[in-house]
């Protein structure tokens, strides 16, 4: 036991001493041969896998949570984290020493996911979304979260339509994706949450949020554990094979590479 601790100590010291100097990152093309991180099950992971090609087995680390990925970036375990632009910006504001590479890695659209074949609910939700787009409700929600300090949003101000006569609308999400979904106290805030609250109201139902891990979401919706999943989910062809999607509610969301500021030269 003692020997083991000493060994640990020596290893730790060595790793401090031999932090080798490398050339700084300038373009995203360089990422193809670097250690990357992404949140498990997200499009960030798929993009990183595409970037790395055959090396994804050795160079890609996936994490359950964004904070874990960012922490490993800051500790130098990886050189970049592939993630959505919006949460990336939030990290930049809160955490020192980070930068976003100028070039976006891809652009995609967000939509709400449903169990394959649940066409009835898809149609209802699409109708609600169309109304929200038309009357500016959706824009107002985005404006609230993208311009102001959304951490100040009080969950009590969101109407979950408690006790609605039409039953409950179970929505699966992963509340670690600011500003789309966040847990505050014992309730939730975020763009997706507010949007789903309005949809639930239009459907005459009470909104019930089920907060689970991102990679558990497809399982939850396909086993009918929840009615739909709304967690900034990117529409991909692969996912379309396994679930149905609503119309997009975000178009052109960027996937970016977050790197250490001192490791990046424009």
């Amino acid at each position: 036991m003692k020997k083991f601790l000493v060994l640990l100590l020596v290893l730790a010291l060595c790793s401090c001493a031999f932090g080798a100097e490398q050339a700084k990152l300038t373009t995203t093309a360089q990422l193809k041969t670097e250690r990357l991180a992404a949140q498990r099950g997200t499009v960030g992971q798929y993009i990183a896998e595409d970037l790395l090609g055959d090396n994804k087995g050795t160079l890609l680390t996936t994490y359950e949570k964004y904070v874990d990925a960012i922490a490993s970036l800051r500790q130098g375990k990886v050189r970049a984290v592939v993630m959505d632009e919006m949460p990336a910006k939030r990290f930049l504001a809160e955490v020192e020493g980070l930068a976003i590479m100028d070039e976006a890695l891809s652009e995609e659209n967000y939509a709400i996911g449903f169990r394959k074949g649940n066409t009835e609910l898809v149609a209802e939700v699409n109708k609600a979304l169309a109304e929200m787009k038309a009357d500016g409700t959706l824009d107002a929600i985005f404006a609230k979260y993208l311009t102001g300090d959304y951490t100040a949003v009080k969950p009590e101000t969101i109407d979950f339509n408690k006790g609605a006569k039409g039953g409950k609308l179970f929505v699966g999400t992963e509340a670690g994706f600011a500003p789309y979904e966040l847990k505050v106290g014992s309730s939730y805030i975020g763009i997706d949450v507010e949007m789903c609250a309005v949809i639930a109201k239009k459907l005459g139902k009470e909104l019930v949020i089920e907060n689970m891990n991102f990679d558990a979401l497809p399982m939850a919706v396909s086993t009918n554990k929840v009615d739909m999943i709304c967690a900034g989910i990117t529409v991909t062809d692969e996912r379309k094979e396994n679930m149905d999607f609503s119309e997009n509610y975000v178009v052109g969301a960027k996937q970016v590479a977050v790197v250490r500021a001192d490791d990046y030269e424009k």
Binding site: K65, Y66, V67, D68, I70, A71, R74, R90, F91, E94, V95, T151, G172, A175, G176, F177, A178, L182, K183, V184, S186, E210, N211, M212, N213, A216
Partner: peptide
């Protein structure tokens, strides 16, 4: 238990992480 959507102690810590973006 957080995996299936229960905000237990561990998950509560992770929820705070997501709010403040602080890891440790």
């Amino acid at each position: 238990a957080g995996y299936i959507g229960i905000d237990d102690l561990t998950r509560a810590g992770q929820n705070i992480q997501a709010l403040t973006l602080e890891h440790s």
